[in-house]
């Protein structure tokens, strides 16, 4: 699924990587635990999380995750956006809960990892 579709489905806002809405994700993973994210081996993963701090971006950087949705209205700070920009990571802010975010994307055909 393309980033542009994700944004539309979630009625969300891209706050970093606006020019890369054609980027396509294969699967999604939802977690606030970065240790879990670091165990993933898939490519083109969408990370859905309610954890908005520098380590969220660092974890994505190390795991080659290029797109993050921040659920339940969590905001990315300036430093986070700068680091995401440096690493070509798309950041999306969404007001829906993690449950609703996952539900809508799953309904639209986004596949889970496990």
């Amino acid at each position: 699924m393309r980033v542009s579709e994700i944004v539309q489905i979630l009625d969300a806002r891209i706050i970093c990587g606006e020019h890369r809405t054609d980027y396509t994700i294969d699967v999604a993973f939802a977690s606030d635990l970065m240790s879990d994210v670091l165990t993933l081996k898939n490519d083109h993963v969408l990370l859905i999380t309610g954890l908005a701090n520098m380590q969220t971006i660092r974890t994505a950087e190390m795991s080659d995750i290029n797109c993050i949705v921040f659920a339940r209205n969590k905001k990315a700070g300036k430093e986070m956006i700068a680091l995401a920009e440096e690493n070509d990571i798309i950041l999306i802010e969404c007001r829906y809960s993690m449950f609703k975010t996952c539900g809508l994307l799953y309904q639209a055909g986004v596949q889970p990892i496990y």
Partner: peptide, 15 residues
Amino acid sequence: EMGFGAGMGLSNMKK
């Protein structure tokens, strides 16, 4: 609170 501390770090390093 930073998203770590679940006791998975060393075993993931080993993997």
